[in-house]
């Protein structure tokens, strides 16, 4: 199972990190998205930095669970954004599905690495072993 987790981590990290190029280079589409969310430009950079951190944490062995938590949170936000503001029309559909995909993958990572989750990991570990 750890191998599955690693594959998911790498895919998540790649998706998170490749979108950074658009965010940090102030790509027209990216600016458009964050303008609609009324977060331009600070929100775009803040989210970008958080995604960068999540991506890095995901590929460091000791911190994968932390990265997955952060990624889950960010993608939950992204999905909320699509549902409430951005919608799923045209190319937004692809972006929205990508966000959902990363959300599902990071939740899967958390399920596999449940015992590594801070604080609640111990509760989960005992439940599983019984």
């Amino acid at each position: 199972m750890k191998k599955v987790a690693w594959i998911l981590q790498i895919i998540c990290a790649l998706i998170l990190l490749q979108t950074l190029y658009f965010k940090f280079s102030a790509h027209v589409d990216s600016v458009q998205l964050f303008t609609e969310l009324k977060m331009e430009p600070n929100g775009r950079i803040l989210i970008g930095v958080l995604e960068l951190i999540a991506g890095i944490l995901l590929i460091i062995p000791g911190s994968a669970a932390y990265g997955a938590i952060l990624a889950t949170g960010l993608m939950t936000g992204a999905v909320i954004g699509h549902i409430t503001v951005l919608g799923f029309a045209d190319e937004r559909l692809q972006l929205g599905l990508l966000a959902i995909a990363v959300l599902v993958m990071s939740i899967s990572i958390l399920v596999i690495r449940r015992t590594e989750i801070p604080i609640i990991g111990k509760v989960l570990a005992k439940r599983i072993s019984n």
């Binding site: 009324k38 929100g43 938590i69 909320i80 954004g81 509760v123 989960l124």
Partner: peptide
């Protein structure tokens, strides 16, 4: 939209709480 940072945090807490109250038995 910034309030969603807090929304997400509380969604997490809600999920954990549901798990504690209804799923886990240990």
């Amino acid at each position: 939209f910034y309030f969603h940072f807090i929304t997400v945090t509380f969604i997490f807490l809600t999920v954990i709480n549901i798990f504690y109250l209804n799923v886990q038995t240990h």
